[in-house]
Computed example of a mutant assay.
Amino acid sequence: MSLKDRVAEATSGADDQEPQQPAADLAVNDTARQWLQRRQTYFTDALPRHVDKAHFTAVALAAMEKLKDCTPASINTALLACARFGLEPDGRQAAIVPYRGVATFQPMYEGYIELMYRHPRVDSVHFGWIRGKDQWDYTPTEPSPRDFYHKPRVDLSEDERGPVILAYAFAWIDGRRSQVIILNRDQATKIRDKYSKAYKNAERKGTKDSAWHTDFDAMWAKSAVRRLVKVVPTSTELAELTQADDDLDDTQAAPPIIRGTVIARDDQPEHGERQAPAASWPKTAQPGTAAHGTDGSEAGEQQ
Rank of each mutant, 00 (worst) to 15 (best):
T11F: 14
E273W: 00
I257T: 03
L67V: 05
A46I: 03
K222L: 13
K208C: 09
S235I: 10
D137I: 01
Q302T: 10
I96C: 04
V232Q: 04
H50T: 13
T261E: 06
H271V: 09
A202L: 03
S124H: 07
D215Q: 09
M108L: 14
D137G: 15
P22M: 10
F170D: 00
G206N: 13
A221Q: 12
L36K: 03
G272I: 00
A244L: 02
D52K: 14
K230I: 02
S144F: 06
A103S: 06
E203S: 12
H213Q: 07
K133I: 01
F85A: 02
G13L: 09
P72H: 04
D186S: 14
L238H: 10
L115A: 06
P72V: 06
I96A: 08
T284R: 09
E160H: 03
E160N: 08
Q34P: 00
A299K: 11
K197T: 14
I181H: 03
L80K: 08
D249A: 02
T31H: 09
R6H: 02
D52G: 11
G86R: 02
I173V: 15
T77W: 04
N184E: 13
Y138A: 12
A169Q: 04
S297F: 00
D52E: 14
P19Y: 13
V164E: 01
R121I: 05
V262E: 01
S74I: 06
Q135V: 14
M116W: 04
V231G: 01
A244M: 07
L47Y: 04
R177F: 00
D45M: 08
A81M: 06
V231H: 08
I191G: 02
S157C: 05
P120H: 15
I75T: 10
L238N: 05
L115V: 05
L87G: 01
E110S: 10
D69F: 09
A291Q: 13
P256M: 06
S144A: 15
E65F: 11
K4P: 00
L115Q: 05
R33G: 09
L241H: 01
T284S: 12
D25K: 08
W281C: 05
V28S: 07
D186A: 15
R265A: 13
G288E: 10
V154W: 07
L241Y: 03
D209F: 06
T57C: 04
S280T: 12
Q40H: 11
S2I: 09
D246G: 10
T289K: 12
G293N: 03
D25S: 13
P145T: 12
G128C: 09
T261D: 03
P143H: 06
H119S: 13
Y168H: 13
A58S: 14
E110L: 14
I258R: 00
Q34G: 15
A27Q: 04
P140D: 03
I130F: 09
Q20H: 12
Q275A: 15
C70L: 08
D52N: 15
I258S: 00
H150T: 12
G13S: 09
L241Q: 04
L115F: 08
P233C: 12
Q37L: 14
P255K: 06
F43G: 01
E270I: 07
K66W: 06
V225R: 03
V180S: 05
A211F: 07
P143R: 10
Q303W: 02
V97S: 03
E114M: 04
A73N: 01
G288A: 11
A95M: 11
V125G: 03
E237C: 12
H271C: 05
Q135I: 13
